[in-house]
Design a protein around this nucleic acid. Sequence first.
DNA 1: CGTTATGATTTGTCTAGTTGTATAGAACAT
DNA 2: ATGTTCTATACAACTAGACAAATCATAACG
Lengths: 249, 249
Amino acid sequence: MSSNSPKTPGPGTRTAVWKSITISLIDDIAQGRYSSGDKLPSEAQLAARFGVNRHTVRRALADMAEQGLVHARRGSGVFVAATPTDYPIGKRVRFHQNISRGGQIPAKRILALETRAADKTEAAALQLEAGEMVHVYDGLSLADDQPIALFQSVFPAHLLPNIRTELEDLQSVTAALKACGIADYTRAETRITAKLATATQALHLRISEGAPLLRTTGVNIDPEGRPIEFGRTWFAGDRVTLTLNGEES
Amino acid sequence: MSSNSPKTPGPGTRTAVWKSITISLIDDIAQGRYSSGDKLPSEAQLAARFGVNRHTVRRALADMAEQGLVHARRGSGVFVAATPTDYPIGKRVRFHQNISRGGQIPAKRILALETRAADKTEAAALQLEAGEMVHVYDGLSLADDQPIALFQSVFPAHLLPNIRTELEDLQSVTAALKACGIADYTRAETRITAKLATATQALHLRISEGAPLLRTTGVNIDPEGRPIEFGRTWFAGDRVTLTLNGEES
DNA sequence: CGTTATGATTTGTCTAGTTGTATAGAACAT
DNA sequence: ATGTTCTATACAACTAGACAAATCATAACG
C-alpha cells in the first residue's frame, strides 16, 4: 500500500512493492497463519492476492529465502523454514534423547535398507574382512517434522543377522540393537568435517545446493569392544550446532 | 524424442538434479555396489532414496541407458549392462585435530593483537559486564606450510593484564596462560557449526570463497571455574578432520 | 505335473501444476 | 540519458498423480 507519506527523508523512493509484500508475508508467518514446514500459496496465487506480477512476488520470496525464513523447492512450492537446533555429541549419541531433550519431537524416515558387501572404508571401520556382508540403513532424521540430518548406518551382518527387520519395525538404531541383544553401546571415536551439500542432499535437507554441511563419522562398539555400527551423518550446517560438553553425561 | 540435447547448464544454473543422480548411480556401479547383470532398485525405491520424484529418476536412468550402462525392461526392472572403466579417485591429505581437550592448536603466525572493549557475544561468553576490556589474539595456524585454520582468542583483561606480551613471545596460548599463572584449564563446552568461507577467510586459508569451513567456538575455564578464554576457530573443511575419541572425559 | 487365472509389481506414457531462468519492454525517478 | 522497478511472455526443470502395458509370483484347477 502506498498510502504512506510520499516524501520520507530517507532514500527518497517510496517503499518498494516487493518489500511491502515481504513484510506482509513475514507478518503472516509471525501471526501463525503459516507455520514451520507449511507450504505457502503458489507464486501465481500470491501474485493474484497482492495484485502484482509473479516476478514481484519472487523478489519478495528471494529476500525471505536469503534471511533463511523460507525455502523453495522447484516443482513443489515454497515452505516455511525450520528453526535451528542444538545437537549434543559425545560418548553416548542417542538421537531420540538428544532431540526430545530440547522439547522437539524426533522422527526418522527410511530412505533405503539393503544388504551388500562392505567396501574398503566400511570394512576397515568395522574390522571386517574385505567383501564381508553388511546391512546398510540410509535414513533422514527429523525434529518437529523438519529434516535435521542425513545418515547412513552400516552393521556387520554376521553379528546382527536380522537387524534389518528390526530397523524396519522400530526405525531406531538403539531399539533395534537392543532387540538384537545389544543392550548398551558407546561411541569409540567421532570425526567431524565440513562439506558442501550435493544436489540430492540439499533436496532431502531442504537447503540449497552448496550450503555447508557438517559431516560426522563414527564407530559404535558394544561393551566388549566389538564394533557393531559404522555411522556417517550429514547435518544441515546452518540449522544445527553440534555441542560438545566437557563433562560426560 | 528429445534425442541428444548437449545443452550446457547456463552460468546461473546449478547442476541439474537428475545429473547428480546419474553421477551417484554410476559411482555405485563403479564401486561394485551393483555389478553387471544385477537389477537396480525399482524407480520408486530410488526416488525415495534420493528424495525426488520418480520422473527425475527416470531422467537419470534414461541418461545412463543412452550411455549403454543400463537397460530397462518394462515390468521387470532396470539392469546393469556394463561397468564404467574410468573412475576418478579423490585423494587428499587430511590433517587430524583432536578437539576433546582444550581445543588448542599449535599457533604459528600472529595476524593481530589488540585490546578493546568486549562485544556482546564475548561479554556473555566470558561473563563480563558490557564494555569491559579484553585482549584479542587473531592468528593463523599452519601445518606443512599449509594454512589449516584461522582462530581468535579473547581474554578478559582484568584477569590477564599482561598476556599480550607473553603471547607475542611464546605464540602459544597454553604457554602464555601458564606464564600468567594459569597452570591448568579445561574447556567448558564446544560448539561446532558449518559455514561458508568469506573472501578474506578464503584468502588467508588459501581456499576459494564459498568453500566449507568448520567453525568451533568454546570457552576455557580455570580450576576455579572462572572463564579465561573465549576462542573461535575456523578450520578449512577440505584439509581438517576433527576427531573426538571416547576416552577423554 | 502342466496350465491357467489372478493380483501385485514394475516400467512407459500422459496431463497438469509449480518454481527457476531468460528476454524484452513500459513506467518512473534522479 | 540512465538506472531501477515492475510487467509480460516464454520456456526449462521438477513435482504430482493417474493410467496403460509388460512381467513376475502364486494359487487354483485340470
